[in-house]
Write a protein that binds this DNA or RNA. Sequence first.
DNA 1: TGGCTTGTTGCTAAATATACAACATTGTTT
DNA 2: AAACAATGTTGTATATTTAGCAACAAGCCA
Lengths: 248, 248
Amino acid sequence: MAEIQSLARGLKILNLLEQARDGMGTTEVAKEMTIDKSSASRLLHTLANYDYVVQDDSSARYQLGPRLLTLGQRVLDRISLRDRARPFLDKLVDATGECAHLAILAQRQALYIDQVESSAALRVESEIGTLSPLHCTALGKAMLAFGDGAMPDSLRPFTQRTITDQAVLQAQLLQIRQRGYAIDDEEYNYGVRCVAAAVHDHRGLLLGAIGISGPAGRVTLERIDDFGALVRQVAGDLSAKLGFVAGC
Amino acid sequence: MAEIQSLARGLKILNLLEQARDGMGTTEVAKEMTIDKSSASRLLHTLANYDYVVQDDSSARYQLGPRLLTLGQRVLDRISLRDRARPFLDKLVDATGECAHLAILAQRQALYIDQVESSAALRVESEIGTLSPLHCTALGKAMLAFGDGAMPDSLRPFTQRTITDQAVLQAQLLQIRQRGYAIDDEEYNYGVRCVAAAVHDHRGLLLGAIGISGPAGRVTLERIDDFGALVRQVAGDLSAKLGFVAGC
DNA sequence: TGGCTTGTTGCTAAATATACAACATTGTTT
DNA sequence: AAACAATGTTGTATATTTAGCAACAAGCCA
């Protein structure tokens, strides 16, 4: 499978710009990619011609362009699961007072495709579009448990509690299948606990997962199983609405 | 300014896929681009390697990939105006019961970057990320009136009421500058009226516009000036919060 | 089965992109 | 202020890369 080099380079530049907080200059891009300034310049111009990047008027630095926003939104629109799931996310927020999320599998990670905030006052940056590892998030583990059996390649630790042993993970996935919900007990971010359950389509295939997340102070270990039962119930209702018949 | 051909072709393919409702096959892409199948195949593979497209398991057809969602969201995150404007959009929805929108200028069009729905029950597809013409939308005209004076190249008609004459448009822009708000009276979509006002930064430069839109039955011509005063007021409050001192 | 379409892979000619260099432009330092 | 440094852009020739052709493989339908 031969790659088209210049296209690949262009896409790599977009990946670079994603990281850069406030843009990158031509020379900077060239250095990072270990290509010549002139090549970087021409690639960036081509990207700019199609609005995939924009150059700041004053600083002449390049940033990701509005075209990506448009295209990204198209990806979202195509995921009808998102529309169907929204009322169920609202339900979770109403019942728990915590944030609710919807994710699907993409690039062997959990791709957040919707989010409902618990309080409009406390507004955080949207996590929609972000990718998270599967082995240490509730949404991810719920999808692993009911997925096609493919395991993540590496169990990278993020906190002290992150599961790094395949056997331990396998055991927990079995438990998740039995209980119907997955828990992330500060395994990804300190001070944050999450509960999630898988969503299935009419053929029983895994579609994604929904869940809630909140500060460990509110989502306590005493309450977490109640939350689990709730999330499992709501995820089941959603699956049912999508035509999934439990026990099939 | 020489364009890198293969990169440009890759980007054009993404543009194509944006239009295709349920994906495109290799041959289809090749035909549409008037390039060889083999070239299309290799370009698509490269795009797929970086998750800019995905091929459906069963049909082998290509669709826009999750990477675009991630990148698009980064574009949104960078627009801090969006965070600052959100409470003001909420205010507009509370006061009018109609949908509120925030847009900025991009690619000489109005790029919608946020939206607040009037009723959670009635959920339409998100317009975030979509581009609309400037000369026949309230948000667009508000930005034209307070922008750098650059006019749209063509005044394409969308409805019977769309302004297609430069002189008429210029006259209306003057009026908008005087009144402080712009109106779209079924000039873009039949049965929809919109009201919008410009948002400025601390130096008085145009940042974007906010406004409301609703069915002509509710947003009547009698009420529209009241809505206009309201939108102008709220947009002014937002500008003030961003450091804009009126009269500077 | 036999035609039909679609997707992928070798191969070589030929177009294309690359790096080098020179130049223009901006900002910085003494 | 003036020289300097750093950045971005534009020719140009070489050499790499890509494009199209053709053959092949795989699925689909009648």
